[in-house]
Amino acid sequence: NPLPEGCSMLEIERITQSVLKSHIETSHYSTEELKRMAWTLYSPEETRSFQTKSAEVMWQQCAVHITNAIQYVVEFAKHISGFLDLCQNDQIILLKAGCMDVLLIRMCRAYNPINNTMLFDGKFATAHLFKALGCDDLVNSVFDLAKTLSRVQMSEEEMALFSAAVLLSPDRPWLTDVQKIQKLQEKVYVALQRCLQKEGATEQKLAKMVSKLPILKSICNLHIDKLEFFRLVHPETAYTFPPLYREVFGS
């Protein structure tokens, strides 16, 4: 893997460290905490109480959680070396377009493949718990993605670099300085390749990660479709969603 032009090994190392540090500092739970919580499940009664909530209440609750997680992704982005050197227009475009991708990648940390459950509001939940949302296809896609991503067994360093690479996608529409972002992404991918080599992983592992990108994109689009439909049916509730959520997922 040749180094990008004008880029030293020292710089790749600096990027690796900054991205990993940022990922760890902006992850709500550490891997140890997640391991400890993995068997704290919602009881059947608790699950039923979520299932019998109204769609409005459940959407509101999920929107609040997603908004909270977005704030962490913004902080993650800010600490990736080079991100804040981009013009603010591009920073906002990258975040609006990529924060859901990063959230989905991060979700596989909070997924337990043994019982197909995911951490939600302090306990692990099955996909059925989210029935009231009226988006079974979206919820099932998220769980399926978490399942396939967890099989890749990314280390924290790999996940950090993969998240950064996805966030720094130069093909997002309306970007001003595509070249600058392209160079940054290239460096992050080199850092990811070096990290995989260091850990003795095969080339296939990177291919497996990259092969998930179209699925990430389709889930992001599905979320927007579902949100638009919800907005049509329940405009007043959608208006009370957290302002940051509306800002990021508004048209």
Binding site: V74, E75, K78, L84, K96, E247
Partner: peptide, 20 residues
């Protein structure tokens, strides 16, 4: 800028997420 007021604020402030 007005449309993305909160994102602008988050990008400019130096607080950590725990303070948000």
């Amino acid at each position: 800028k007005e449309k993305h007021k909160i994102l602008h604020q988050l990008l400019q402030n130096s607080t950590s997420p725990v303070d948000l």
